[in-house]
């Protein structure tokens, strides 16, 4: 009789051990899956429309007397090509950066107490030379905290032989 009771108890202990082992493995697996998830990114039509419209913005920069005032995309090209001065005395890169900053701040309100916590705008010149891709930074604007999820998009400005890619990320 005692032998029967011990056998039953052994089986119960064995079953409980198996369940505990499985639970531990599952908890570790779930913990790895859910801890520090990669920031989620999503392509946004709104951001693309913003970039497309921003590039047409007429700036206050003209390179010579009587010449046209440059649109923002032309000003960014000018910044990359030669960094020449506007007749107002401002550097083309500074003028492009200032204009872009005003456009972003006017379009999206960012801050710790707002839905958008920050933004990250960059313009990179990319060219494929001898089978290798070379990049050169043209512009960089950041504000707030951009470490979490974000929506973004990019806009291409042709600049022979490569392109200038303007990327904007709006962070949550």
């Amino acid at each position: 009789m005692q032998c029967k009771l011990r056998k039953g108890q052994e089986e119960i202990v064995g079953f409980v051990l198996i369940v505990v082992l499985v639970v531990i493995v599952l908890v570790i697996f779930l913990g790895i899956q859910l801890r520090n998830p990669k920031p989620q990114q999503r392509e946004s039509e709104v951001i693309y429309q913003f970039l497309e419209s921003s590039m047409e913005q007429t700036t206050n920069c003209t390179l010579s007397e009587g010449a046209s005032y440059l649109a923002l995309d032309d000003l960014i090209r000018e910044c990359h090509e030669s960094g020449s001065l506007c007749i107002s005395g401002d550097n083309s890169c500074d003028s492009a950066e200032e204009t872009f900053k005003k456009l972003v701040n006017g379009s999206f309100v960012v801050g710790p107490s707002y839905p958008h916590k920050g933004y990250d705008v960059s313009a990179l010149y990319v060219v494929n030379a001898s089978g290798q891709s070379q990049t050169e930074s043209v512009l960089n604007l950041t504000a707030g905290n951009c470490s979490g999820n974000y929506i973004g998009n990019s806009y291409w400005i042709p600049e022979f032989p490569g392109s200038i890619i303007v990327r904007t990320k709006l962070c949550f």
């Binding site: 429309q49 913003f50 497309e52 419209s53 047409e56 913005q57 007429t58 005032y69 006017g106 379009s107």
Partner: peptide, 18 residues
Amino acid sequence: FVSLCRYDGDIGQARCEI
């Protein structure tokens, strides 16, 4: 978002604003 364009007589060219 769009680009609002009009002829600006002060600068003698089209001006576009977001």
